[in-house]
Design a protein around this nucleic acid. Sequence first.
DNA 1: GAATCGTGGCG
DNA 2: TCGCCAAGATT
Length: 364
Amino acid sequence: MKQMKIPNIEHLQIESFQQDLVGWYEKEKRDLPWRKSKDPYKIWVSEVMLQQTRVDTVIPYYERFMEKYPTIDTFAKAEDEEVLKIWEGLGYYSRVRNLHSAVKEVKERYGSKVPDTLQTISTLKGVGPYTAGAVLSIAYNQPEPAVDGNVMRVISRILSIWDDIAKPSSRKIFEEAVRKLIYEQDPSSFNQALMELGALICTPTSPSCLLCPVRDHCCAFQEGVQTELPVKTRKKKVRHLHLFAIVLKKEGEFLIHKRDETGLLANLWEFPNAELSELLSPKEQMMNFLQDEYGIDAKIETGVFTKIQHVFSHLVWDIDVYAGEMMSEITESTRLKLVNKERLIEFAFPVSHQKIWREYQTRE
DNA sequence: GAATCGTGGCG
DNA sequence: TCGCCAAGATT
């Protein structure tokens, strides 16, 4: 066993801390849709949606999702294409692909009951340490830590932990801390209370320490270093990619393409596009691209009709958008379709291409 | 361990 | 305006 830094909890009166934290939570917790049920499936879906995503963004997605797929079995039966469509705009699309796959496995292998042991639930696709702990504690009331960004921030301040939370290895230190602090009579409320405190009081930039129910237990507050914690190294800046995209029309229909099944925006639909180089003129590049990639000819308008920038977490797209008319026939396939305006909205597009479509329509 | 993988909001 | 962020998992 490699030795690990042990969090120092000597200054803490644990029972008093637990009471102050959970007591505050029971009184102040927000009325969120996923808190109306203890159904492990619903807790699970909410936790996946909430990964790296704000509560306000998730709420409407969660409501729509539960209306359409209220149970394991209803979601297990869903088609891939509609599953992607319901996630459209939420981002990190591998989440829903993994969730769908995992739910089907729960139906087939576990009789539609979400596993209730750490070992088993952790084997499900898309279920990492946080989600496993969250489902086990919130739905099954097991004393497992659920360490997310909120919890690392809150605990780093309370216990004055100066490890860099950007490092994956740091998470274990906080899990150990939570194991020692967790309120075994109500692990569900305790874990949610830590996250709720992080969301409402113990915020990243200007924490409301004067309103904090556990400030008397907080090491960072006593030392006046709450804004110095947590330590988090910032990431380097992102690279830019210059692209062209073409809205190609043929007799009232538009050419759309389904992206590769792995990588960025996997399986989403898009307008034909590629990286723009400096070697040839844009028009030559686009003609070559259409011929090489799809075997088609087109008349492309001379100027761009809009430029779109789209910022990802690790990448920026600068897209020059052109309009044109298809001059040849295509054989439609699973990844290449001609669709009219009405059918277009049945497909899941990344936000960047939704912008393209919106701009195109204002132009027509 | 470092990169990848989205999006919208905020100071 | 822009870096940073928000209930992470996978490769």
